[in-house]
Amino acid sequence: MWIGGVIGGAALAFAILQPIKVLPRIRVAPGYALTDQAGESFTSESARGSVTLYSFAPLDCDSRCDEIFSTITEVRERAETEVDLGEAEFRVVTIALADAPDPSALAAAATASGADGDEWRWLGGSADRVRTVVGAGFRNFFEIEGDGTVEFEPGYALVDGAGVIRGEYRYRTVADDADKIVSQLGSLGVELRHSGGAAGLAYEAAHLFSCYG
């Protein structure tokens, strides 16, 4: 009888706690101070408090970028109706894989991609700085060749308001990138909305016990 009670209590607790799924805190996102398409400084601190989807693209890009930009556009549209991030804003930042581009070149690339300059910004900096941020920080491969052409692997990173990478999308899988990103944005939204009080403790526990889903 006593054992039955213990098992019953444990089953009840499992039934309550099991559905808590969180996106992993992968690692700290790189810090940066870059320039946007309006020529203004934009830093990792400017993005603090917002959930930010990062992408990386050359200024003069081929069909690979068409897919990146259409994915971002779809994510932005669907996020408006399908995702509730609570008080956090959703932003998109595309870091230009180029060496110290002029703001006018950034602006042209931004316009071509559909970026509005506010919720979706293009950022640029020196090749060394971009290498540190994109290559070492976001761990996204790219190479600027001597003739200015850029080899790169399309990829995205989802960063929370605390500056922690919560999702990385580097390799194409069966699932569509936009589906994956919107789904994970939704999970992050649930976590953000429940991050206070007793429920917040349960979500923190879920992180520490690695109940990732």
Binding site: I7, G9, R25, L208
Partner: peptide, 30 residues
């Protein structure tokens, strides 16, 4: 009912014993 209550009490004690530290900062599990 006594058994269920006792089970719940044991569970609470176990959870309190193994409950993770409540971090004031943002903690990484990995």
């Amino acid at each position: 009912l006594v058994a269920v209550a006792a089970g719940a009490l044991v569970l609470v004690l176990v959870v309190r014993e193994v409950a993770p530290h409540s971090w004031s900062g943002t903690a990484f599990a990995t």
